[in-house]
Design a binder for these strands. Structure first.
Length: 580
RNA sequence: GGGCCGGUAGCUCAAUGGUAGAGCAGCUGACUCUUAAUCAGCGGGUUGCAGGUUCGAGUCCUGCCCGGCUCACCA
């Protein structure tokens, strides 16, 4: 099926036919590389012309053509392979007439194999003096334009392959993401953890407060949820004697998307028996410093305008954080003691709201300040209010690495509480650059207390509360879970931090996007006249194309791709009109 | 879902309400060390979609679609 831009697609089809007429196979099965362009550049990039000549280095390599400069009976091109670019020089009297004719029929985007010797041009660029040239794959669609590269954010995400070809930074981000994963695995493997995989499809979606995705299993005729967290399964494993486990895998939460949220995201969770959250604070500081030095070469990393030292941490209680980041206009700032008191958080939240409302009336808007008052505070518990105040007032301000501790117990249903104050949980979160990167606590291992908290959640209800109590988990605890500490780290956000990326979509290869519109998809298919024209090598000008196929163009949704269109409608993925 | 910004040739972008343009990419030709190659010529558009105002709309109005940012949602 031809794709747009049709004229260029057909033009390239025509060249393909000419190449076949030369007796060349446009899609040969194999080609032997002695080295990739990247390897050649790193091995010989520093050798001067004299050294290259005396050593007479011959190479056989392959890659995608990114630039092409023909000069009559010779020409230059750059090929890209393994991430680096290498220039090649093709001369008629070296490669012969047939190969040179092939060279003239090549387009930017074609994949070729070449062999020859290395030399340096007049301008001292490392270049292959091509002796043999083979087409390895014909490209039928033009690559993004060479000056500006690929800038359209939507195309970069939808057609990530183009982003990876055109933007070196895209490739670097995902290479670095792989390095982060390797480093994490090595770190935990070296400390006696075993990596495990637990169910992604669960009958009860637990371990976090989030709306799950629902699916259906045919044979058992039952609903299944895509997991929102692996937590409850990993702790079952600790009950089973796997004292140190970790899992790196996807979680799914049926929520909105933002620069920090994708509905599926990758999470590291690890648990270690005979430990508590203090041990994990120490581990966190060590782990982040280790990651930064391994991946960025220093504990100091740049994130946008900020310079962040992952070797220096502050520890702050949630109440201290609220008190110290309280906006000046909403004075007086609550004290930690006030926030600890029975009505303290509510009074502070009301003070905050009246400030926001008054400011809205004055019409003043300070940069970065919230525009809407806190919603739903009437129904919130003491702990929920504290958590909300923290997120509103302090979280965006936590740029330097911070371990935030003393979470309210009533927003921490899976944590042990402090011995000296049952309203506070033995829990902390990791904040860096205003991002929430990690969440850790001493795991609640009292089965009866856990069951009580679960029942309370179910009774309180709400969209994000579990529908039923996971009694098998409670039963597992009843067999005895050693004192255990556990932690989750968001891999996507961690990658953002270590690659200076400011949207989660930059670090996820294929982030969730709204589906492409049916109408625009149908424009990618061509009419029968166009296809036969393509086969005969004739190109129909757009003006005639339009006239010749106007009947079918008039209702593309009905006539071109009826199945796709109806399917999209049935599933409600595409909005078809007002009022939906 | 709300607010703000945007959608013009394949790409990056122009165009007081008055004939839709440029560069790159593409095509033809010239050119045996170029690299944003150069030179000469050619083709390429339902200005996101649908209405409205107007003698006349890329431009103004309304609705919708799509994207980005942001707020809300999201421990």
């Amino acid at each position: 099926m031809p794709f747009e831009p049709l004229d260029q697609y057909l033009q390239r089809k025509k060249k393909l036919a000419e190449i076949e007429a030369l007796g060349e196979d446009p899609f040969p099965h194999r080609f032997h590389q002695s080295a990739t362009p990247t390897e050649i550049v790193s091995a010989h990039g520093s050798q001067d012309a004299g050294a290259l000549d005396t050593q007479h280095v011959t190479v056989s390599t392959a890659g995608r053509i990114l630039t092409l400069r023909l000069h009559g009976k010779a020409g230059f091109a750059h090929i890209q392979g393994g991430g680096a670019r290498l220039q090649i020089y093709v001369k008629l009297d070296v490669v012969g007439e047939r190969a040179f004719r092939l060279f003239q029929l090549l387009d930017i985007g074609d994949v070729i194999g070449i062999s020859g010797r290395l030399f340096r041009t007049k301008t001292n660029e490392l270049t292959v003096w091509v002796e043999r040239l083979t087409l390895l794959a014909k490209s039928l669609l033009p690559l993004p334009e060479k000056w500006h590269g690929l800038a359209d954010v939507e195309v970069r995400y939808r057609q990530r392959y183009l982003d990876l070809i055109a933007n070196a930074r895209a490739r670097e981000i995902f290479e670095r993401r792989a390095l982060i994963l390797r480093t994490l695995r090595a770190y935990f493997d070296a400390r006696g953890y075993i990596e495990v995989e637990t169910p992604m499809m669960q009958t009860i979606a637990g371990g976090a407060a989030a709306r799950p995705f629902v699916t259906h299993h045919n044979t058992f005729d039952m609903s299944l949820y895509l997991r929102i967290a692996p937590e409850l399964y990993l702790k079952r494993l600790v009950v089973g004697g796997l004292d140190r486990v970790y899992e790196i895998n996807r979680n799914f939460r049926n929520e909105g998307v933002s620069t920090e949220h994708n509905p599926e995201f990758t999470m590291l969770e690890f648990y270690q028996a005979y430990s508590d959250y203090r041990d994990l604070m120490t581990l966190t500081e060590d782990l982040f410093a280790h990651l930064a030095t391994t991946i960025c070469g220093s504990t100091v990393v740049k994130y946008g305008e900020h310079t962040i030292d992952l070797g220096k941490w502050q520890r702050l209680s949630m109440r201290e954080a609220i008190a110290s980041y309280w906006p000046a206009g909403a004075a007086p700032a609550p004290t930690a003691a006030e926030l600890a008191s029975r009505e303290g958080p509510r009074a502070a939240a009301e003070r905050f709201n009246s400030w926001v409302r008054a400011r809205a009336q004055r019409g003043s808007s300070e940069a970065g300040a919230p525009q809407a008052p806190l919603a739903g505070i009437e129904k919130m518990t003491h702990g929920e209010l504290t958590g909300l105040l923290f997120e509103t007032v302090a979280e965006p301000k936590l740029i330097q690495p911070t371990l935030l501790y003393d979470f309210p117990t009533d927003i921490s249903p899976l944590s042990k509480c402090r011995d000296d104050d049952p309203s506070l949980a033995e829990r902390f979160e990791v904040y860096i650059a205003g991002l929430e990167l990690g969440n850790a606590f001493s795991e609640l291992n009292d089965a009866e207390e856990q069951e009580r908290r679960f029942r309370e959640q179910v009774e309180r209800g709400g969209e994000e509360a579990p529908r039923e109590v996971d009694m098998d988990y409670v039963r597992a605890l009843a067999y005895g879970l050693p004192p255990t500490a556990g932690m989750g780290i968001g891999i996507d956000r961690l990658t953002m931090l270590l690659t200076d990326a400011h949207s989660i979509r930059e670090v996820i290869l294929f982030p969730l996007l709204r589906p492409e519109r049916a109408a625009s998809m149908s424009s990618m298919s061509a009419s029968p006249e166009e296809i036969s024209a393509a086969e005969s090598g004739n190109i129909i000008p757009a003006s005639q194309r339009e006239a010749g196929s106007s009947e079918t163009e008039a209702h593309p949704a009905d006539t071109k791709t009826p199945l796709d269109w109806r399917r999209a409608n049935d599933s409600g993925q595409i909005k078809t009109g007002p009022g939906e």
